[in-house]
Design a protein around this nucleic acid. Sequence first.
DNA 1: TCTGGGGTCCTACCTCTT
DNA 2: TCTGAAGAGGTAGGACCC
Length: 399
Amino acid sequence: VSTELPILHLDMDSFYVSVEVLRDPALAGRPVVVGGTGRRGVVASASYEARVFGVRSAMPTARARRLCPDAVFMPGDHAHYRQTSAEIHRILSEVTPLVEPIALDEAFLDVRGARRLFGDGPEIAGRLRSRILEQTGLHCSVGVAANKLLAKLGSEAAKPRVGPGGVEPGAGIVVVDRDGELDFLHRHPVQALWGVGPSTLRRLERLGVRTVGDVARLPAGTLEAAVGVAHGRHLAALARGEDDRPVEPDRPPKSIGHEETFPDDVTDRRRLEVIVVRLADAVATRLRAHHLTGRTVTLKLRYGDFRTITRSTTVDPPVDDAVAVSTAARSLLAGVDLAGGIRLAGVAVSRLESNEDRQLSLDERQSGWTAASDAVDAIRARFGVDSIGPASVRVGRHE
DNA sequence: TCTGGGGTCCTACCTCTT
DNA sequence: TCTGAAGAGGTAGGACCC
């Protein structure tokens, strides 16, 4: 094994489903699907037994049901997955503080400083896999490489696969050696590159580009004309195996939001207002939990035909209480046409800043909402999130 | 046969200020 | 006072990620 492979990408295998199987061992070996179980839900995680039938994550649940009617469909329990994820994070932190969580089931590690204690990248990968299995009963795949891109592709390559004969176990760990980097990278389809989604893929396909190797051979001008200068340069670098993004632990959030898709399109303005107040309350609660305030409030609406609009406004002083967030969101709502029906509504707050060291302005001290919000948080901490809420939402419940 | 919910980042365009 | 350039900040939308 050559030197300088300090980046690990660790990815739990069908995380949500595997956690459910741990809770109910009778599910083991069966097709299991975790995701939205309503009419408009999508698959969040599918067991390999379900993937044999063609079920994939992000697929509408309705389609998954047709593909695999005998699967067990579950709504999922995010609070519990978060707990398990925290446990895994603790295990990772024993090796290095340089852990960057990407999602509940995924993280990058920079083990440069841990090698004296724990060995080289591949050794640490093996150690982490067995520690996680021992302590949580869960399997994961790990990629070890010189940078994030290659480590990520490594963990992907290490995963179990669905073949013609059923589920084939994966290698568990794939080490991308410096000598074999470009060989390994260039074999991948372009979609494997960070930043190539459906739209960029279409443009690249028009140029006859199918693999990462094809991107690497493309003249810079051609690529930049097709996808834009900044994006083109970025893709070209990635296709050469160059990725200098550092592993960043503790990245502060840039926005906090809540959104909800309705079982049926909503056309009634009054009903939508009630929903927006409820979303705003949820966002404000999380802002306070993180000791954050925000300067921009954004309302997001998706029409029945999937057209999506956003409307945002700047608020001063920065806000973290339900009244202020919902007042801003409702005034944005007042300015939009609801004809055509709304299938999704969302409220988000961005341009966040910590409120711990902020001086309260005179306005805020006089408003009294700070004290009210504190009281709401205290009541919820004792009696549960549903114990108290905005009056319009609670009235709405009994309609 | 339809398309979740949590986000980040980038770009285009507009308005305001200098 | 008019006009234009340049930069900053705000807003909207799109693409992408898991």
